[in-house]
């Protein structure tokens, strides 16, 4: 279970930075790249820990993993748009956040639910 708790820790930090980034995207401002390149790697570490946990077998939060993977793909797409000078669609940024929040909630339920 330690892996799951650490993963939750990384996702929580990533979520805080993500919310901060969202305020830039929604105002149509350039995202601060130090935050972009901290948010992504933190979420990736959380995701890798989650995958290791699931790979060990037993009951697992696979629904959470699916949502996080979808969120990660959206995130990669947004970074590529951002760095190549194309605007980030606000709906995509919000959707990415909602997917990640969904995954996070499911992960919390799995870890602390019962």
């Amino acid at each position: 279970m330690n892996l799951i708790y650490t993963s939750i820790g990384f996702f929580a930090l990533a979520a805080l930075l993500g919310m901060y980034l969202l305020t830039f995207v929604l105002r149509g401002k350039e995202t601060p790249k130090a935050i972009v390149f901290s948010h992504g790697p933190m979420a990736v570490v959380g995701l890798v820990l989650l995958i290791i946990y699931i790979a060990k077998g037993g009951p697992n939060p696979w629904e959470s993993l699916v949502l996080f993977v979808l969120a990660a793909l959206g995130g990669l797409y947004m970074v590529s748009r951002d760095l190549t000078g194309r605007p980030i669609p606000k709906v995509l940024a919000v959707g990415h956040g909602l997917l990640a929040v969904g995954g996070f909630v499911l992960l919390l339920v799995f870890a602390f639910g019962n």
Partner: peptide
Amino acid sequence: VAAQYLKDIP
């Protein structure tokens, strides 16, 4: 290059 991006803090 990555280090240069990481200098872009608010």
